[in-house]
Nucleic acid binder design. Structure first.
Lengths: 112, 112
DNA sequence: CTATATACCTTGTACTTCGAGGTATATTGT
DNA sequence: ACAATATACCTCGAAGTACAAGGTATATAG
């Protein structure tokens, strides 16, 4: 077991999912691989993170889903709603603000 | 009340506090202002965040404190231990990894 | 002499990520 | 034919975490 509440991960699943689904419709199992890929292996989210996140996002109206049978198996494809686009924009702003703040704090050793 | 568990903030107080105290000893009330300053106003942490964080960091051996009377008032100054320096290094690594992953994910519109 | 700034602190709330475990069908290897 | 793996969905409990609000007390400023 990794430690719970790992640093800097709060909000990251939500941001990544919305960002990926903004570009194209995808299903859960596929998103597990896609997250790894688009972050250049830097971030990996398990199914225990992806599925609940997807459900929450759909519940609050950021995503909509449709079921699709593919070779005897059922996939649930998710895509962004208008609300999801707004949510993504806000999360990106939050991210950039915090990212800037921390960058500023980490540069300038000042004691050199 | 702001929403609980705000996005991207998990681990940020710990990182910021360790980073600032790495450069110089400070007391809690002073750190509230310092955090704002070193992040160029991008991030602001209240006393309800700072004090518990300081206590936790001291409890786990990352910080040491000494009390100092200043004009009839008592201040508790905190500074980094060897363990705190290691913890800071690890947090910085985590931060950079995630920051890189998200940057990669956010660039390339690809659908342009 | 009252209001504000300094300086410390605690409590409760409302989240969150994560691993582990569970079901079922299709595909691949032998 | 049969076993193992990959695909595809899901739930639950654990262990935190940041935050606002509220509380105490002393010094300084209006």
């Amino acid at each position: 077991m990794t430690q719970p509440n790992p640093p800097f991960m709060t909000g990251v699943p939500e941001l990544l999912l919305l960002r990926i689904l903004e570009q194209q419709e995808m299903y859960g199992y596929q998103l597990v691989r896609s997250v790894k890929q688009v972050t250049a292996e830097a971030i990996s989210l398990g199914e225990g993170v992806i599925y609940p996140a997807l459900h929450g996002l759909e519940r609050n109206g950021s995503l909509k889903s449709r079921r699709k049978a593919v070779g005897g198996r059922t996939r649930v494809y998710y895509s962004l709603t208008r609300k999801g686009k707004k949510r993504l924009a806000k999360l990106q702003d939050d991210w950039r603000r915090i990212q800037n703040g921390i960058s500023t704090a980490l540069e300038v050793p000042a004691h050199a």
